[in-house]
């Protein structure tokens, strides 16, 4: 019997912090990335090594894209670290989540009424906590960049506009659309990755050999696409926030 839990399973407590398997996985991802970052930092050269050129490629791609979208090198460089971190974090979490052993190595916990399987690791983005955190950061970031570009007073007019009846309601709509972005960001990422996990579990249970392979490729692709979608949407929303400063003088 396959048991699929919508929430990440809790493993234990670290002080006041309840540690679940998704948090553990994201710690792994962060740790791996930090090690990678250190390796890059201390092997950085004008003529790049392979690992350096991969990072350079990602960085150059996003920098070029953002310069095009924002029409300003300065703005692009200011926003870039945030957006790039979204991409790298989400991508590595998604790909680490596909690795065999994650979601399948664990313990059977004997509860009072039933026995449940407790995997040690679970794809970080298959926990709504992670995606919600990222979504909140993304949306707040958008507001902060908007305020930095337009000033607090002018930017607040985007949501609280008393210059007319229609404008007032447009502002209210705008406000709710920002709130809804949090939901759409978090549930899109969570849904895709969680569905992928479920799909892999189900296929592996039905036909354990060979058959899951195409679905693994699919999940690698989905993991990349979702990271890209999240990043792109953030870039575009920040562009919209910058627009407030540029319009209506």
């Amino acid at each position: 019997m396959i048991e699929i839990s919508l929430k990440a399973e809790q493993l234990g407590h670290l002080g006041p912090l309840p540690v679940n398997n998704s948090l553990l996985a994201s710690w792994c991802a962060v740790l791996i990335l930090i090690v990678l970052a250190l390796i890059i930092r201390f092997s950085i050269k004008l003529i790049p090594s392979k690992i350096q050129s991969i990072f350079e490629m990602i960085i150059e791609y996003f920098l070029g894209l953002m310069e095009e979208i924002y029409g300003s090198k300065e703005k692009a460089r200011k926003v870039f670290p945030w957006v790039a971190t979204f991409f790298i974090f989400i991508l590595s979490c998604n790909w680490i989540g596909i690795l065999p052993g994650i979601g399948s190595i664990g313990l059977y916990e004997h509860g009072e009424d039933k026995t449940i399987f407790l995997p040690f690791l679970r794809s970080a983005n298959a926990d709504l906590n992670t995606t919600l955190a990222l979504a909140i950061i993304s949306v707040l970031l958008t507001q902060i960049f908007g305020i930095l570009a337009a000033g607090f007073f002018k930017y607040s007019k985007r949501f609280f506009n008393f210059s007319g009846f229609i404008n007032f309601f447009a502002g209210i709509l705008e406000f709710f659309s920002e709130l809804i972005k949090v939901v759409s960001f978090s549930f899109r990422l969570f849904g895709n990755i969680f569905a992928g996990e479920v799909l892999l579990v189900v296929i592996s249970a039905l036909v354990p050999f060979v058959a899951p392979l195409p679905f693994y490729f699919l999940e690698i692709f989905v993991g990349f696409i979702q990271a890209l979608v999240f990043t792109m949407l953030t870039i575009v929303f920040i562009r919209l926030a910058f627009l407030v400063a540029e319009e209506g003088h």
Binding site: L23, S26, W27, V30, A37, I59, T85, F89, A124, A133
Partner: peptide
């Protein structure tokens, strides 16, 4: 947990910013 993930993100942001970007 939410906060822990936010912290994760910021740690990663700082590390990547100073060591990579």
């Amino acid at each position: 947990l939410l906060l822990a993930q936010v912290v994760n993100f910021f740690i990663l942001l700082l590390v990547l910013y100073f060591f990579v970007y």
